[in-house]
Simulated scan of single mutants.
Amino acid sequence: MQELLAIIAKGLVDEPDAVKVDRDEPNEEGITVYHIHVAEDDMGRIIGKQGRIAKAIRTIARSASIRTEEKVMVEID
């Protein structure tokens, strides 16, 4: 999942070397949180107009997590 999120984020930004994806351990509800870190100048590119790109990234992550039966949440930092 981390690789998938990193590939998606690197394709959207101007500074792909600055992209970093961290994973938190599952919380008490079983939800794993992934944090996408990008350069400050690329925040607008990864979020998109009215958050549409961020919403699409979250949808892809949820769809991919069905195979592993994992509950995921994506945060953009």
Rank of each mutant, 00 (worst) to 15 (best):
34 Y>W: 12
26 P>W: 09
66 I>N: 06
47 I>Y: 11
34 Y>P: 04
33 V>T: 15
75 E>W: 03
29 E>S: 14
43 M>C: 06
11 G>L: 11
63 S>H: 05
4 L>T: 14
75 E>N: 06
59 T>C: 14
6 A>W: 00
65 S>I: 08
9 A>R: 02
8 I>C: 05
28 E>F: 11
5 L>T: 09
14 D>C: 03
77 D>F: 07
63 S>G: 13
26 P>G: 09
27 N>I: 15
51 G>H: 12
36 I>L: 11
66 I>S: 05
20 K>S: 05
65 S>W: 10
51 G>M: 10
48 G>I: 07
36 I>A: 01
32 T>H: 04
76 I>D: 00
18 A>Q: 01
10 K>S: 02
69 E>F: 14
18 A>H: 01
59 T>W: 05
1 M>Y: 06
40 E>D: 13
15 E>A: 13
2 Q>C: 09
10 K>R: 15
54 A>H: 03
60 I>D: 08
15 E>P: 00
8 I>E: 04
55 K>P: 00
76 I>A: 03
46 I>P: 00
52 R>F: 03
56 A>S: 12
36 I>M: 05
70 E>T: 15
19 V>M: 01
37 H>S: 08
57 I>Y: 01
1 M>C: 10
64 A>R: 08
60 I>N: 05
56 A>E: 02
69 E>C: 11
45 R>F: 11
11 G>I: 10
9 A>H: 03
50 Q>T: 06
15 E>W: 02
53 I>S: 01
3 E>S: 13
37 H>W: 04
38 V>N: 03
